[in-house]
Design a protein around this nucleic acid. Sequence first.
RNA 1: GCCCGGAUGGGGUAGCGGCUAUCCUCUGGGACUGUGGAUCCCAGGAGGCGGGUUCAAAUCCCGCUCCGGGCCCCA
Length: 410
Amino acid sequence: MKLERPRGTRDFLPEEMKKRREMEKILRRIAESYGYGEIATPTFEHVELFTLKSGESIVEEMYVFKDKSGRELALRPELTAPVMRLYVNSCEVMPKPLRFYYFANCFRYERPQKGRYREFWQFGVELIGSDSHLADAEVIMLAYEMLKALKVEFKLEIGHVGIMRDVLKGIENSDRIMRLIDKNQIDELEKFMNDCKVDEKVKDRVFRLIELKGDASILEKVNFAEKEIERLKRIAEILDAAKVEYEFDLGIVRGLDYYTGVVFECYAPNLGAQKQICGGGSYELASLFGGQKTPATGFAIGFDRVYEVCNVDGEKIRTVFVVAFEDTYLDALKIAKMLRNSGFVAVIDVMERNLKKQLSYANDIKAEFAVLVGKNELEEGKVSVKDLKSGQQIDVPIKELTNFLSSRTV
RNA sequence: GCCCGGAUGGGGUAGCGGCUAUCCUCUGGGACUGUGGAUCCCAGGAGGCGGGUUCAAAUCCCGCUCCGGGCCCCA
């Protein structure tokens, strides 16, 4: 009976891990270059942390379990709530703003599809303590720069949930209206608002907002919510100066209640059904978790989806295969060690194979060179170096081996 | 949670009631015991799982599992 992976999980082989690590390295470098520091939180948390943020219904979509003392725990389905919990627990008196980033696996009990797994990775940042448009702009720039550095083709869309929410303030069934807006079901939306006898002025504003898509000039067409429109204009100035490409879409509302102001999303058009690769915005969760009301803004990148459309390669370290014979194995080990100390990958036979098989294997693992450690050459203090691409072979004194190989770069 | 499609050695496949389950690739060994990628030979390895129909099932039927596509959802 063969054991299978749990549904929705994946194994990663070296080739894939290499690319993932390279992507991770790029993201970390950029986050740190903006002054963000890495944090880590537990893989599981109390269920309440997530139900508090998102409602009881999300229990269905989480891995929930009881520990031996009967505590209700959940594998984290996302990182924003844990980060804000950490903030409230330990960071409230630290100098603001705080800049954090994380890279971590998350778990959701959902039906797996391409680009949607039960264990998946998110790379995210949170900027805590500022409600200025400057904070919004910084975080958006950061997301943009990261996806660009990963050579991803994507579209950035910026909206503002606060404006729509304000328009619908006090209106009955505003949840349902928001949902219809989110799904872009315009006919349905109009019908529903008529049925609910929504005020004409409100209806007019709703339709005006959802039609607004494009560059900063669309903001001129809004004659209400002046303060927040002004915020978007200022963000636009900064993004334009930074040569960030984006579109405004005031019809972005998302179901996320905790978002308060500017929100943004990135899409990779060639990903199909699961094409959203990054989402974020400003929110307020600290007070919900028992802390002082604190503005925050951040985003999370769907690492696994980005992997699919990312065009970076893993770092190539030059590999040398050390061919050993029965009577020279100990000397070959020393030479391998010497090469490793000089920054090469040195691979040596452990199958007790003959020369032919060793070379064949060296070829299979894409070694650049084979260093033949033979009795005859050793007696002269040399080894034989074979270029596996050209087939050329030359004897090199052991003392000069690393220099010789280094000089043969490319 | 819903609808649809699929599952044959490690990977890719043929067979679609009946020979020892086909072919390619792969892995190990050998021909060639100090010179790779070629060739040849030998060896290894498979019908997702469970049940049913039948003299006989990889093949037909049912359930489950997993994968893929689309919904719901996406905190």
